[in-house]
Simulated assay, not measured.
Amino acid sequence: MKLDQWAEDIEAIVDEWEKQEFLSEGDLFVIGCSTSEVAGERIGTSGSEEVAAMIFEKVQQLKQKIGVDIAFQCCEHLNRALVVEKKVMRERGFDPVSVVPVRKAGGSMAAYAFEQLEDAVVVENVRADAGIDIGETMIGMHLKPVVVPLRLKQRWVGHARVNSALTRPKLIGGPRAVYAT
């Protein structure tokens, strides 16, 4: 396992999110991650708590430095539900579901986040402002309606392709509409 190199990969991604000022305090940031894909295996086959711990630590920097709330997406076996802090659930009006993610049903990343977050709960869905998808776990269902792909310099964590996205308000109106820049 090349954990040190993978840590550099995710750190470069987090640094770019910070430096480009894509996020603001109070934004909701969703992360989907296949630790199997990071390690070069097929999604859902070789989950790793060690990889999850490394990614969790790096992503938490966004919370600490910017003040975003983070949601960790579970795998398809839990219908891509998300792990958040109970405080986030209450403040945002999310409804909890009764499940505890584990490596084989929820995924290593979500299971690790559930153990590490203060007062963790699982919610069925969110409307996030932005997010990263490590290993093509399909976070799009949890982003606000108008998604803007974000092309970061660092496009891989280990063997897993990374996709990033922002959202923007809908542009409504017709030919006479005026939009703020």
Rank of each mutant, 00 (worst) to 15 (best):
L62M: 05
V157W: 01
V162C: 01
W156V: 08
M89K: 11
P175L: 12
D95G: 10
M89C: 10
V146T: 11
G26H: 03
E91A: 14
F56K: 08
W17D: 02
P145L: 04
I134V: 14
K86V: 00
L143E: 04
L82D: 01
A113M: 07
P145W: 03
R80V: 00
D4E: 14
V83G: 06
P101N: 04
R161G: 10
E136M: 12
L152Q: 05
K153H: 11
V100F: 11
M141F: 11
G106E: 01
S46L: 07
G135M: 06
R168D: 00
Q60L: 14
R92S: 05
D119R: 11
P175M: 11
D95C: 08
M54R: 02
E8F: 09
E18V: 15
K63S: 14
V84N: 02
S108P: 01
L152Y: 04
S24A: 12
E57W: 02
S46E: 13
N79E: 15
V88P: 00
V100I: 15
K87S: 13
E115D: 14
R161T: 09
E25T: 09
I10A: 09
A71V: 01
K58S: 12
E21R: 13
M109G: 02
Q116P: 03
V121K: 06
A130K: 02
K104F: 11
S46T: 07
E37L: 07
T137Q: 10
P175T: 10
P169Y: 01
S36A: 14
W17S: 04
V148P: 00
G67D: 03
I10M: 14
D15A: 10
N163A: 13
D133K: 01
R42V: 15
A53T: 03
R151I: 10
L28T: 06
E85A: 13
D129E: 09
I172H: 08
V68S: 03
R92C: 05
K104S: 12
D119E: 15
I55M: 10
G174I: 06
K144I: 00
I43Y: 04
E136N: 12
F94K: 01
V51R: 01
A180L: 13
P96C: 06
V147Q: 09
E85L: 09
A110L: 06
D95K: 14
V59I: 15
R90C: 05
D119C: 07
S98K: 13
K170A: 14
S46V: 00
H142T: 04
P101T: 05
V38I: 15
G26I: 04
K86Y: 04
E49W: 08
V121H: 05
C75Q: 01
E76T: 08
S36N: 07
G26K: 09
A128G: 05
F29S: 06
G140S: 11
V68F: 00
V100K: 14
A39G: 14
H159G: 06
L152H: 05
G93T: 02
W17E: 02
D9N: 15
K63I: 00
G40M: 07
P96L: 08
V122S: 04
R155L: 13
A130N: 03
T137S: 08
V126K: 00
G26D: 10
P149M: 05
A39S: 14
P145N: 02
R151W: 07
G131H: 00
